[in-house]
Design a protein around this nucleic acid. Sequence first.
DNA 1: TTAAAACATGTAATTAATTACATGTTCACT
DNA 2: AGTGAACATGTAATTAATTACATGTTTTAA
Lengths: 198, 198
Amino acid sequence: MRGNWFNEERTTRHRRELAIIGQRNRLQYIILGLLNQRPQTGYDLAKAFENEIGEFWQAQHSQIYPMLKRLETAGEITHEDTIAGEKLAKKQYSLTPSGHEKLVAWVSEPSPELAATKDEFILKLYFIKSADDPRLQPMLQEQAVLHRTQLAHLKQRRQTVFPDQAAIDQAYGHYLILDHAIGREQYYVDWLNQLLEH
Amino acid sequence: MRGNWFNEERTTRHRRELAIIGQRNRLQYIILGLLNQRPQTGYDLAKAFENEIGEFWQAQHSQIYPMLKRLETAGEITHEDTIAGEKLAKKQYSLTPSGHEKLVAWVSEPSPELAATKDEFILKLYFIKSADDPRLQPMLQEQAVLHRTQLAHLKQRRQTVFPDQAAIDQAYGHYLILDHAIGREQYYVDWLNQLLEH
DNA sequence: TTAAAACATGTAATTAATTACATGTTCACT
DNA sequence: AGTGAACATGTAATTAATTACATGTTTTAA
């Protein structure tokens, strides 16, 4: 395990037992995982970050293209040049055996760190000292709208992407994380509603 | 609103309605908020990131000290040099009226963006295709241990920091976010438990 | 037929965040 | 008297991520 600014090996301080991590090079693994599903172009990968994994991880094409080069240099992926139509050049990337191994190793290794949630609203709440602060109710209202919208969006996605049991069985992990995200939003909405009822 | 890579103004794409943000310069506001509570040194601020706000935001002293200089140059904060003991130099920072204004403006402005949650376990789950994958159960078990521990830790903190109603009334926002964090962890644990019962 | 949207691939500049380097003081305990 | 933990403040190097710059092709719909 790489040294983390605050981890369990750091025995001299006992303020917190569990490390909360920022973000490390997980992008490479996501790319390997996506390419394991099927060979894809950088553009396809960028779209995946806007769609299915977008709820959980974000990356722009400006981060993806350089990473594809790095991974190819490292021998984890290769590409095949193709031409679409008259002359539109595409690079179809796919995993090498080494890349596949690396992906399997990553999924199999422990994930002992808590997710770093950076929620600006929660941060602002911290600085509201009193329950009577006139800013509090509007803030809660605003967040309720935001999270109700997101909840509806996620439920809609679940219905579209997983219409039947067969769809769930084919991409069980994807189903689980969508289900998890829905539950998380539902909790957020319930928590806000309960506060709004005072 | 500063241009975001994927926001509501971007009307030409309709894949997602709500922006998920990365991280912007929120550190400065957190520092202003902390200094608004009471004048503090950089060291004190760093400790606050390990304790109360550590569940919601992380920053190291190597980020804090330069930010204090930036904020002082910008006229948002000032400092007073003091000596502790024989010769230990301390810099006690406090808000200027301008810094206070800036803090109030930030808290008052809308927070229309969803939190970016980067959870490595959730990411790995995405790449588990089948419910029969032998890695799935151990992964869920591991996460259950992690989140049960965190839940216990947060509940302990609530009991310590908010033993009575008076404590809650004095730092209502802090209480709310701790309550929110507990609810969030409780949901995570319940979700994992329900999956582990198959 | 033409304009907009989507497809497609890159690089550059900047900012945010982590990790490591660097140094010294004070307090509590043995 | 000595040691280790906590107090205290910085900088440097690196990595991650965002935003902006840059260019061209193909498809779709008015």
